[in-house]
């Protein structure tokens, strides 16, 4: 398509402005986290980096007192990682298997059951959070990783996406596998899972980020600081900014925020490559 110079210029101007608009808050948070708290308190938010990067990040990562609790940011990152990975991997496995049953096995009520699962898409977690809490509490799973992850592991979205994908796999592939002597489990592991790599990557990305960003659920399930996730940690630090008559910990709060965003960004970047690679290679 022919594009005039003027048009290229405006296109780029809009894109660059948009990119700046998105990136500026992150930049401000990052550079403000590299100054001392006195400097930020006196001079407001900063646009250029300061000299206290290692000091601030070191304190937040390894010193529990810097986060106003009994855990360091490193421990909170670990908790978040466990939650994010457990949440994403669990959801991928469960929804793949559920979709496999729905698409490839003829059993009574398969269709109504699918729609029951699908309709739960309409119910946000908040609707069932109190009964879920009750169940987890009576199972004695409060303040455990199992209690954090297990109740969230079923995924209507994932089941739906995998179902749609499986239905697009040609029936002849199943028939060829049957003639080749592959039973249901072999077919699933040898054929369906490798074909689903791109779907798995996509759902893993989405679910990891969702799991990482969970706030309400871990807040309810954990009363023990040792199990706090980083998202809760941020809230704690910001809460304490104006308490206690000290100079607010702005740089450290910003540092915690920046660290909280790094793992999801890494996951997206790493898996996006796989995602594209998968798309190119599994062309049918």
């Amino acid at each position: 398509m022919y594009q005039s110079k003027w048009r290229i210029f405006t296109n780029h101007a809009i894109l660059i402005l948009g990119a700046l608009f998105m990136i500026m808050p992150v930049w401000i948070a990052f550079v403000s986290s590299t100054h001392t708290r006195e400097f930020v308190f006196q001079n407001g938010l900063q646009f250029w980096p300061g000299e206290h990067f290692f000091e601030n990040y070191g304190a937040i990562l390894f010193d529990p007192s810097a986060t106003k609790g009994r855990v360091t940011a490193l421990e909170m990152l670990f908790n978040s990682m466990v939650l994010g990975l457990g949440f994403a991997i669990g959801k991928v496995i469960i929804s793949m298997m559920a979709a496999y049953a729905i698409v490839y096995f003829r059993f009574k009520l398969a269709v109504p059951l699918f729609w029951v699962v699908f309709s739960t898409l309409l119910l946000p977690l908040e609707v069932r959070i109190v009964p879920s809490y009750e169940v987890v509490a009576s199972l004695g799973l409060l303040n455990t990783y199992t209690g954090l992850i297990l109740p969230l592991i079923a995924s209507a979205t994932g089941t739906f996406f995998f179902r749609q994908f499986y239905r697009s796999v040609p029936d002849e592939l199943l028939e060829a596998a049957r003639l080749d002597g592959a039973g249901p489990i072999r077919f699933f592991i040898d054929i369906l899972v490798p074909l689903s790599v791109t779907m798995i990557a996509a759902i893993f990305i989405i679910m990891f980020v969702v799991g990482w960003n969970q706030y309400l659920w871990p807040l309810l399930m954990t009363t023990d600081d040792q199990l706090y996730t980083i998202v809760i940690g941020i809230k704690q630090v910001y809460n304490s900014l104006y308490e206690g008559g000290q100079i607010p910990q702005f740089p450290k709060a910003f540092a915690l925020t920046i660290m909280a965003t790094i793992p999801p960004v890494l996951v997206v970047v790493v898996f996006q490559r796989m995602f594209v690679k998968g798309l190119v290679e599994t062309e049918k």
Partner: peptide, 17 residues
């Protein structure tokens, strides 16, 4: 699988991966 037959399909049905 136990009939000792082999089949060739119209769309080949090769395992793409």
């Amino acid at each position: 699988a136990d009939r000792d037959i082999a089949m060739v399909f119209q769309n080949y049905a090769l395992y793409p991966h």
